[in-house]
Nucleic acid binder design. Structure first.
Length: 280
DNA sequence: GAACAGGCAACTC
DNA sequence: GAGTTGCCTGTT
């Protein structure tokens, strides 16, 4: 039985900002500020209307979704804590309404292995093909959806079976990571107990997982909000706006949230600039 | 056709 | 250790 629930004021959870800030790959827009997504074998629709954000989901799953959407974290306070200096304050203003999702550990790790040297539409395509080929199908009011296949399932695959995904050189990384997680060589549960830096080094023992992918898995999969992934966008932003030698750790326990604000603000700025150029 | 994309690892000096 | 290169694939 699907029902609609009110979550919070729209300023505390913007579906657009939260699902487009690069942290997840299985949420897609139905309209402006209205997204349909899949996580942990469940589907939901999240939308803002009348100044409030709502969710439509299976009645039994509302607790899961509140946790997934990190509703128990005080984002007003977290946001305040990373507003250091003019640039970060501006990014935090642009990014108000972003929440860091509590994603499945394995899904986050695997998705960010796929993400390397890839753009978002293509990452989403590869992830979707992985799910429809090897995940479990389930019915929703929005049609049949597929869960993200767990590590044990992916561990059984051989490289040729992944060929239709066109994951390229990432395919062996995916299978290798799945096998390590499935056989316990990499224990994502205990990684969740480590501090961010230790967890990052631990995940880097996987082939095809470097600093960037490991940091993303730690931030988004282990919900260690002090992890600060540096990709080309962030590198550029740091170079342009922050003093040389700036240490992200100085931002404290919510450094990763600051990273999301920066990433979203930079992408948004670029998107708006492109739009302006095209309309000329 | 060349360059590039939200990177990694192996190799060079 | 800092810098360079190949890697799959799709897009510009």
């Amino acid at each position: 039985m699907y029902k609609t629930y009110e979550l919070c004021p729209a300023a505390e959870l913007s579906p657009y900002k939260t699902f487009e800030c690069g942290q997840c790959f299985r949420w897609n827009p139905l309209a402006e500020e209205e997204y349909l997504g899949v996580a942990s074998g469940r589907a939901a629709r999240v939308y803002a209307a009348g100044g409030r954000t709502h969710i439509e989901c299976e009645e039994a799953d509302i607790g899961f979704w509140r946790e997934y959407l990190d509703m128990d974290t005080d984002y007003a306070a977290a946001r305040e804590s990373v507003m250091r200096g003019e640039y970060l304050t501006q990014c935090a203003a642009t990014g108000e309404g972003i929440r860091i999702l509590r994603q499945d550990r394995w899904e986050a790790l695997c998705s960010f292995i796929i993400s390397q040297c890839n753009n978002i539409p293509r990452i989403k395509g590869i992830v979707e093909k992985l799910c429809s080929a090897f995940g479990e199908a389930f019915d929703t009011p929005w049609g049949v959806k597929y869960s993200f296949p767990d590590a044990a399932r992916v561990a059984l695959l051989e490289e040729p079976e992944l060929a239709p995904l066109h994951a390229g050189y990432r395919a062996p990384y995916i299978i290798n990571a799945a096998r390590a997680v499935a056989n316990g060589d990499i224990d994502l549960e205990s990684a969740g107990e480590m501090d961010a830096d230790e967890a990052r080094r631990y995940l880097k023992t996987l082939n095809g997982v470097g600093d960037k992918v490991a940091n993303c898995a730690v931030l988004f999969g282990l919900h260690r909000l002090d992890a600060f992934p540096v990709d080309v966008w962030i590198k550029r932003a740091l170079k342009e706006h922050m003093p040389r030698g700036f240490d992200p750790a100085s931002l404290g326990e919510y450094a990763g949230l600051a990273q999301q604000y920066m990433f979203f603000a930079e992408r948004e700025r670029s998107r708006l600039a492109d739009g302006a150029r095209e309309s000329v």
